[in-house]
Each structure stands twice: as C-alpha cells, then as structure tokens.
C-alpha cells in the first residue's frame, strides 16, 4: 500500500469522476436524464393526484385545484411531465435492449441516446396534438 511508506502525509489521489474536467458524452447525459426525469415526474404526479382528490371531494376544492391545473403553471408542469414521461419511457426501453445484450457498442448506444431525446420530443408533440 502506498500509505505504508512511513510518511504520515495522505497520498493525494485523483478523485473520480473529475467533474471539472469531465468530458460530457451522449451516454452519460442520456443516463443522468433518466434519473432526473424519473424524479421530476413526482411534481406532475403530486399535482395530478391532488387534482383527482379535489374532484372526489367537493366543488370548491375542485375549483381551486382545477384553477391551478389549468393555469400557466399547471400547463407547464403537465407539458414538462409529459416530456419527462416519454423520455423516461424511451430510456427504459433502451435499458431493456441493453439487458438483452443489444446496442451496447458505443456508436449504437450514442445513437439510441439521441433517439431517446428526439423521440421524446416527437412523442410529446404527438400526444399534445392527439389529446
């Protein structure tokens, strides 16, 4: 061991993963986005469940929740959640492919990352048009 050289000074080893000099790659961005979208979706879920609870409870309560839901804030949260759910959806499918030992070479993995980002935007617009 490097520490056992008699010197009490701690050996300064580089720390992983070097966030200041880390070169961002498609695979790392698409990976962290999966985690971020999965957690951010809780905002939309909480708003949606609150709105449903209000609809179940009373007229004045629904008036309040529905006002929030249909305000610019509610629309922003719902549209954002829609994109987040489609991104997380496609990224999850990508993981199922990886689990099946498919698309693991760097070129394909990077293409699949772009497919998740572009595909999620397309699906979000498509959903907004249909619904």
């Amino acid at each position: 061991m490097a520490e056992a050289t008699g010197s009490s000074k701690r050996v300064e080893r580089p720390l992983s993963p070097h966030l200041q000099i880390y070169r961002i790659q498609m695979t790392s961005v698409s990976s962290i986005l999966t985690r971020i979208t999965g957690h951010a979706l809780m905002v939309g879920v909480i708003l949606g469940v609150w709105w449903l609870l209000a609809a179940a409870v009373s007229d004045p309560y629904f008036a309040l929740a529905n006002a929030v839901m249909t305000s610019w804030f509610g629309k922003l949260v719902m549209t954002g959640s829609l994109w987040a759910v489609w991104y997380h959806y496609l990224a999850g499918l990508r993981h199922l492919l990886f689990d099946a030992r498919l698309g693991l070479d760097i070129k394909t993995a990077e293409r699949l990352g772009w497919a998740c980002i572009i595909g999620s935007v397309v699906l979000t617009v498509l959903t907004l048009v249909i619904v």
């Binding site: 709105w51 179940a56 007229d59 629904f62 249909t70 959903t127 619904v131």
Partner: peptide, 16 residues
C-alpha cells in the same frame, strides 16, 4: 396518458 390528458380541463362532473 390519453385518458388522463383527455380528462384535464373538464368540469367536475366530466372529470368524475
């Protein structure tokens, strides 16, 4: 997503 999205914006009677 389709069913939930379609329900948003309705009156309380429609949502229920």
């Amino acid at each position: 997503l389709y069913l939930f999205g379609a329900a948003i914006g309705g009156t309380r009677e429609q949502v229920v």
